[in-house]
Nucleic acid binder design. Structure first.
Length: 495
RNA sequence: GUCCCCUUCGUCUAGAGGCCUAGGACUCCAGGUUUUCAUCCUGGCAACAGGGGUUCGACUCCCCUAGGGGACGCCA
């Protein structure tokens, strides 16, 4: 039985990269009559949030990738949330300790930092030097009873070569000397990703691990753990990484990466999935429009091309147009459209903002139309007419964007408080501060309340619009951005 | 800095030693249909990173170089 999984960590927006891995994992499993599961990797206490977990589940469901086992649907191998499996990891860490495959480490982060810096400067691989692995049992016991905080690290052979098998690339050889003595259990008692992923994949009987290329370098650690535990190694399939147009790893600063953005922009889930499928894979017939079912039916994991593809919004748009025109009849399109724009939830958000300003229904369109747009058509002249100085306007937009990129609480009052404080710190009058934002968000200088509008639009579309406004103003050069960033940081510390 | 991965038109890709005069798609350009626009149709521009091998024959196999990317966290 083939079993695959996708294992997102709930630390931010639902990322298209996650959907990409999920899609290929799903297709591979389903094609073999197997099962596809979803596991939440929330071992990072500080960064994981319930809200993020929910949007990730919602987004994957929206795309139509249904999992057979997961935190919401349950299953025989649960729990499917790592934070609920702590005793399991504890026990496995203990067994590694007992068998001499792991050791307690009491090193301070200062010492580790210095060590890594020195190693890099000396042309060496940055790696734990094994200091604490030399400690005697008495030393360790003494430190523990003294209450010194500790982590547990895995042991790694001092020499030799580790060979991992990648389904797509064949054998990959990495010297053990390159592999770090990875922390398996943190000071807070939580496992790190590396321990948890191995334990869970084994216990959940995952047969094929489909994940991003970024994991190749840590595969030897995982393989070593499988060996220590005496477990069979699942097959590894490392997918190419999605990229920005400038070829760097896909990131939200350079490209909209949140699945919600594409939903809010009015893309069809079928088209988004189809587009992700054509990155790295193609239907044997060459037809570029295909459904999830067709992809499952014809999928061949060995035909994945390994060059990392650039995520090209233009082509996605074209494909979405085809889906819309060729797949939806007028009835279906009407349903989809009303579901997207005129659903009750959305209308109930919009109505309070415009009710006071409306005399007849037809007033609604010009007033609230911008809430249904993607990126509003704006011109540099609109900013020129403002009292806000051009240099200040750019700064306001850029700083606000950075602020909004970090914002996790997207309620109106919170947004208002945050941006107001930003304005004060920048020493810009709130009027002058908000004016360019009004244009960026609504496309005009007169509009319903800004912060409520931002809530209706949602974080992804809001950020995209501010970014769009900056581009309309000629964009921010790299040099300029660097300067502004320094200034922004300084402001941040003044807050 | 060290290690790892990758490399066909600007972009997504087809290509499993002769089928390649390297095919398709997006974008762009030109033309046609359309009262406009869009759709649709026709045509065009445009690539095997470079250098060595192996072979009768290399986009396809091997080596080197270059370029790009990634990893080097008590993040995942």
């Amino acid at each position: 039985m083939v079993r695959t999984r996708v294992a997102p960590s709930p630390t931010g927006d639902p990322h298209v990269g996650t959907a990409y891995m999920a899609l290929f994992s799903y297709c591979f499993a389903k094609q073999h009559g197997g099962e596809f599961l979803l596991r939440i990797e929330d071992t990072d206490l500080a960064r994981s949030t319930k809200a993020s977990e929910q949007t990730i589940l919602d987004s994957l469901k929206w795309l139509g990738l249904q999992w057979d086992e997961g935190p919401d649907v349950g299953g025989p191998k649960g729990a499917y949330r790592q934070s609920e499996r702590l005793p399991i990891y504890k026990a496995h860490t203990q067994s590694l300790l007992d068998n001499g495959h792991a050791f307690h480490c009491f090193c301070t982060s200062e010492r580790l930092d210095e060590m890594r810096k020195a190693q890099m400067a000396g042309g060496q691989t940055a790696r734990y030097d094994g200091f604490c692995s030399q400690l005697t049992a008495e030393d360790v016991a003494a430190q523990i009873s003294a209450g010194t905080p500790f982590v547990v690290r895995m042991k790694v052979p001092a020499s030799g070569v580790c060979t991992i098998q990648d389904r797509l690339r064949g054998p990959i050889e990495i010297d053990y000397a390159q592999i770090d003595m990875q922390v398996l259990q943190k000071t807070d008692g939580f496992p790190t990703y590396h321990l948890a992923v191995v334990v869970d994949d084994h216990l959940m009987e995952i047969t094929h691990i489909i994940r991003g290329e970024e994991w190749i370098n840590s595969a030897p650690k995982h393989q070593l753990l499988y060996e220590y535990f005496g477990w069979p190694m699942p097959e590894l399939i490392h997918m190419p990484l999605l990229r920005n147009p400038d070829k760097s790893k896909l990131s939200k600063r350079k490209n909209p990466t949140s699945i919600r953005f594409y939903k809010d922009m009015g893309y069809m889930p079928e088209a988004v999935l189809n587009y992700l499928g054509m990155l790295g894979w193609s239907l044997p017939s060459g037809e570029e429009k295909f459904s999830l079912e067709e992809m499952v039916a014809h999928f061949d994991i060995d035909r994945i091309s390994m060059g990392a593809p650039v995520f090209d919004v233009e082509k996605l748009k074209w494909l979405n147009g085809r889906w819309l025109r060729e797949t939806l009849d007028d009835e279906a399109l009407a349903d989809r459209l009303s579901d997207w724009a005129f659903n009750r939830d959305k209308l109930m958000q919009i109505i309070p903002l415009i009710k006071e300003r409306v005399e007849v229904f037809s007033d609604v369109a010009p007033l609230a139309g911008f809430l249904l747009e993607g990126l509003p058509l704006i011109e540099a002249e609109q900013f020129a007419k403002l009292k806000t100085e051009p240099g200040v306007a750019i700064k306001v937009l850029q700083f606000s964007l950075w602020h909004l990129e970090q914002a996790s609480d997207w309620r109106s009052e919170v947004l208002q408080a945050g941006l107001k404080q930003l304005a004060e710190t920048m020493d810009v009058k709130i009027r002058d501060f908000l004016a360019p934002l009004f244009i960026a968000i609504s496309g005009r200088s007169v509009a319903p309340p800004l912060f409520d509008s931002m809530v209706v639009l949602g974080p992804d579309l809001t950020r995209a619009r501010v970014r769009h406004a900056l581009n309309t103003l000629g964009g921010v050069s790299k040099k300029q951005a660097k300067k502004l960033e320094a200034e922004y940081r300084q402001l941040g510390s003044a807050l």
